[in-house]
Design a protein around this nucleic acid. Structure first.
Length: 650
RNA sequence: GAUCCGCUAGCUCAGCCGGUAGAGCACCUGACUUUUAAUCAGGGGGUCUGGGGUUCGAUUCCCCAGCGGAUCACCA
């Protein structure tokens, strides 16, 4: 990597504060004290442990390592707060203890620097447990100022995009993610206790199934095959039940190509589990054990507050049929409604706007529930017995004339947190329901699932009666950590790229999502009969002339479009010399700038400098060119990434 | 996708009726040997998100765009 003057390109925007820090770093390096050469840090204790165990640690010598967060100078003594993974501890430094030189360099540190400090544990005059600095080392320099210490980092956009800053300056954020990890661990432990087997099923699906949602599409080059990111692991996990594993679960990411909100991220984490010989009743008990148990584990109580609303997660939770819920909150008794027409009439009378003429009893019930009941369900409630129309994978509940299924959803704070069924294991019925989905898809419903014949075949082998449960982990974490948005419980929520980072090849407009992968695959399957190459040159070049051409392997450090130019891409290259090399190349119609980042290419480096669009170009990048079906085709020579920059070509 | 709101120094925010910008923290210089958002004195730092328009003059008014947030719709 080139020895750049400044570590980042936007240095112009913060010349002052970064400049001071870079100067300090340079002085250290010149003094033979390059902090980046240090390979370890000594941590005998962590900040929080020292505070917690002060009785035993008083006057003991400890070593801590972490980031300086605040400094309070008093002249010949100073105080600093050091942050490690456990929290902060105060460092007390005194000229008398450190000596002139060491104290002066300590005073020269900046907020954000990473240091190791060794000293005795003691309590200051004002009572704060501290470490008396007797020896210290700078472990890494921080070149950029941290966000403000008192208000922290508030701007949500920056918090999500630069989570490392958020984690440094907003301690409660670290707390939330530690709790998130703990919640997931707890659920694993609980399922382990119940002899569940953790399994992993494919994220790349040929048929996206198990839920109704629009999938993401991607492409496999070697197989020349479109694949979908999974929308749910359900159909795979049930195959494992058929296979006799009896109790399986998977905690993993699902991908749904739908809207985003404070409760929806395109990729989200689900716990999905299946228990042979169980049903939705056993799933209710398990739901309580998992969610209330996790709450007790991290909060030490079942009584929590979510966004100011008290919620009691103490089991057992209320169980209520959907019919009962609609009766209670909407005043309509669907039990006494005999047919679809009456159901539509009742819904209309109650004030439901969108009542299509073909709406069924079940659809009307479900709609009334969503409209009038759902938001009342603040305390944890199992809503059970869903209409068959909205439950394509659940068993029919006996004694309901085939209108209801054995299904429940968990509602807390008016939001759905989980979904469970007595799983449908009748292959004939399942095949019929797939057919139904197919019809809906042909009618334009993009969310309708594709028929999965192999899954039907698995059911034909025989699946035991099974209870299945899905829990939205992100929502549970939101609830248990009192976070208002799903983005607050995802370390790196999906964000739109900022303007300058949007790759050109993202032609993902409606309907025609051509991925870059497809683009390159297409160019691999060329019809050789349509290829025409230029005749070989007849004129010879003598070896001496040829050997003066300096062909070098270069790495693409950056590649961007030249503004206002139709053809030019601007490459910033590492040619192994330590100096960056700028080369402009007219290949924009063949390659997207973003797709070439990091690639290993060939360039001729000893051509006279030439200005293009006012930018001097220092050489040429080598491509192969041929005619294909009357059109010129071009491929960059892209080499194995293991060839180092600067390697000479003979 | 729709509606509303926001974007000003590294960070958190002021900036009125249009007259080329302020505070606190952070940073730099100095003082200070037990501070707690240390204190005190002095100093530097801005493409007011971008592009148009109105105007003698736009951070301010208007339009368009970008990004973010909230609400709605869909979903978990």
């Amino acid at each position: 990597m080139a020895d750049r003057e400044y570590p980042v390109e936007q240095v112009e925007s913060v010349p002052e504060q970064m400049g001071f820090r870079i100067d300090k770093l340079r002085a250290l390096k010149e003094n033979g004290q390059d902090p980046y050469k240090i390979t370890t840090g000594r941590q005998t204790h962590h900040a929080a442990d020292i505070v917690a165990d002060f009785k035993n640690l008083e006057d003991e010598t400890v070593s801590v390592a972490g980031r300086l967060l605040a400094r309070r100078g008093m002249g010949k003594v100073s105080f600093a707060d050091l942050l490690d993974r456990s929290g902060t501890i105060q460092i007390f430094s005194r000229l008398n203890n450190l000596g002139d030189e060491s104290y002066a360099s300590w005073q020269n540190l900046d907020i954000g620097d990473l240091v190791e400090v060794t000293g005795q544990v003691f309590r200051t005059k004002t009572g704060e447990i501290s470490i008396r600095n007797s020896e210290w080392r700078l472990l890494a320099k921080s070149l950029r100022p941290l966000p403000e210490k008192f208000h922290g980092l508030r701007d949500t956009d920056t918090r999500y995009r630069k989570r490392y800053l958020d984690l440094i300056v907003n301690p409660e954020v670290r707390e939330t993610f530690i709790k998130r990890s703990r919640i997931i661990s707890f659920m694993r432990e609980e399922l382990e206790r119940r002899q569940y087997l953790e399994v992993e099923t494919p994220l790349l699906n040929t048929i996206p199934g198990g839920a109704t949602a629009r999938p993401f599409v991607t492409h496999h080059n070697a197989l020349n095959l479109d694949l979908f990111l999974r929308i749910a692991p359900e159909l795979f996990l049930k195959r494992l039940i058929v296979g006799g594993l009896e109790r399986v679960y998977e905690i993993g990411r699902n991908f749904r190509n739908e809207g985003m909100s404070n409760r929806h991220n395109p990729e989200f984490t689900m716990l999905e589990l299946y228990e042979a010989y169980g049903d939705y009743h056993s799933m209710m008990e398990l739901s309580e054990a998992l969610i209330a148990g996790a709450c007790m584990d991290i909060n030490g109580t079942y009584e929590i507050e979510y966004q100011g609303t008290p919620i009691s997660l103490a089991p057992p939770w209320r169980r209520m049929t959907m019919v009962e819920a609609v009766h209670e909150f909407a005043g309509i008794n669907f039990d006494s409604i005999a047919n679809d027409e009456e159901a539509r009439e009742a819904a209309r009378k109650r004030g439901l706007d969108d009542v299509p003429a073909n709406m069924t009893w079940g659809e009307a019930l479900s709609k009334c529930f969503e409209e009038f009941a759902e938001h009342h369900l603040i305390q944890p409630t199992f809503i059970i017995d869903y209409p068959i129309e909205v439950s394509p994978l659940a068993k029919i509940k006996q004694g309901t004339n085939g209108r209801l299924t054995e299904r429940f959803e968990i509602f807390i704070y008016g939001r759905e947190h989980g979904n469970a069924y007595s799983e449908l294991n009748d292959p004939f019925d399942q095949a019929r329901r797939f057919e139904d989905q197919k019809r809906r898809r042909e009618a334009g419903d993009e969310e309708a699932t594709l028929p999965d014949d192999d899954f039907i075949e698995a059911l034909e082998i025989g699946m035991p009666p099974t209870g299945g449960l899905g829990i939205g982990i992100d929502r549970v974490v939101m609830l248990l950590t009192d976070q208002p948005s799903i983005r607050d419980v995802l370390l790196f929520p999906t964000m739109k790229p900022l303007g300058s980072q949007i790759p050109e090849n993202q032609a993902f407009s409606e309907g025609e999502a051509i991925t870059y992968d497809q683009f390159t695959t297409d160019s691999q399957t060329i019809d050789l009969s349509k290829v025409k190459v230029e005749p070989l040159f007849e004129d010879m070049v003598d070896f001496e002339t040829f050997s003066k051409s300096d062909f070098r392997v270069v790495k693409v450090l950056n590649c961007e479009e030249v503004p206002k130019s139709k053809k030019l891409l601007k490459f910033t290259l590492d040619d192994g010399s330590g100096q960056e090399r700028i080369i402009l190349s007219g290949i924009k119609e063949y390659y997207a700038a973003q797709s070439l980042m990091g690639k290993t290419l060939v360039a001729i480096t000893n051509l006279p400098e030439r200005k293009m669009m006012g930018i001097p170009s220092q050489g040429m990048i080598i491509s192969s060119v041929y005619e294909y079906d009357g059109e010129e085709n071009l491929n960059l020579l892209i080499l194995d990434g293991n060839i180092p920059a600067g390697a000479k070509l003979y």
